[in-house]
């Protein structure tokens, strides 16, 4: 667990009063969050509570209807922002991996480096190979994603984010689609990242992992934050009835 001591520095990610409407439905109802540099924040909440939508607002894969997102103190939710630059600096890992099936593992990881970071191809492939080594997949670079197990695919997805040298990585239920025996290999990689000081926002219900890796826990319900605090405190002495109910249900 990394220290959150650098108080004078700006938070890495700050969300201010995020609202989101899909047509008539009010999915996010004013969410605030502050995630410091090197901090791991966990989002919890029942299905449909808006975890994914909030996470996707942080890199504007979804446009917030109202409210601001700040990355290192810079507002990214206005018209002048180059969203592609913002997104290049924030990694994202999806529940369904979303690897590109028509590319090899190495090409998957190098794609952003070549066409977003504008690195020469050979250099990009070196960086990509390094990232794959970090997630323990050095032997699989020439395979296509479909030839890998779910756990391996998710690690490729993490390497794809890592290779971009992001300021933070967003994880949306990264182990929910995995067979149980593969969950740990992915969580292990994530824990190593956390220890190395990567700023992370993680939607996850893996209590054991969160206890070890997450600094802050945010509990969402119906598009609102019902409770937040240090992970151990929220898990062991939940103050809100909704949190207690939820924790009972997933245990």
């Amino acid at each position: 667990m990394s220290a959150v001591s650098d108080t004078k520095a700006e938070p890495m990610i700050e969300a201010r009063g995020i609202h989101k409407y899909f047509g008539g439905s009010h999915v996010l109802r004013g969410i605030d969050a502050t995630i410091a540099r090197g901090e791991v924040a966990a989002l919890m909440g029942s299905s449909g509570s808006g975890k994914s939508t909030f996470l996707r607002c942080l890199n504007r894969i979804e446009e917030p209807s109202q409210g601001d997102v700040l990355i290192e103190g810079t507002v990214i939710t206005d018209l002048r922002t180059d969203v592609n630059r913002v997104r290049a600096d924030i990694g994202m890992v999806f529940q369904e991996y979303n690897l590109f099936p028509h590319m090899t593992v190495l090409e998957n990881v190098a794609l952003g480096l070549i066409y977003v970071r504008r690195r020469p191809r050979s250099e990009a492939q070196e960086t990509a190979a390094d990232a794959l080594k970090r997630v323990g997949l050095a032997d699989h670079v020439t395979k296509h994603p479909q030839q890998l197990s779910g756990g391996q695919q998710q690690r490729v997805a993490i390497a794809r984010s890592l290779a971009m040298r992001p300021k933070a990585i967003l994880f949306d239920e990264p182990t929910s689609a995995l067979d149980p025996e593969m969950v740990n290999e992915v969580l292990e990689v994530m824990r190593t990242l956390a220890e190395e000081g990567m700023t992370m926002v993680v939607v996850s219900h893996e209590i054991g992992f969160l206890r070890k890796a997450a600094d802050q826990l945010i509990m969402l319900d119906a598009g609102q934050v019902v409770e937040r605090g240090p992970t151990a405190r929220v898990l062991d002495e939940p103050e809100h009835e909704r949190t207690r109910e939820f924790l009972r249900a997933i245990r």
Partner: peptide, 22 residues
């Protein structure tokens, strides 16, 4: 699938590059 586009956009690829490469 929608997720392919999400993944490409999350990497910072613009709409044109997403269309072309993904």
């Amino acid at each position: 699938p929608r997720g392919q586009i999400d993944a490409a956009r999350a990497l910072g690829l613009g709409p044109g590059a997403t269309m072309r490469f993904v």
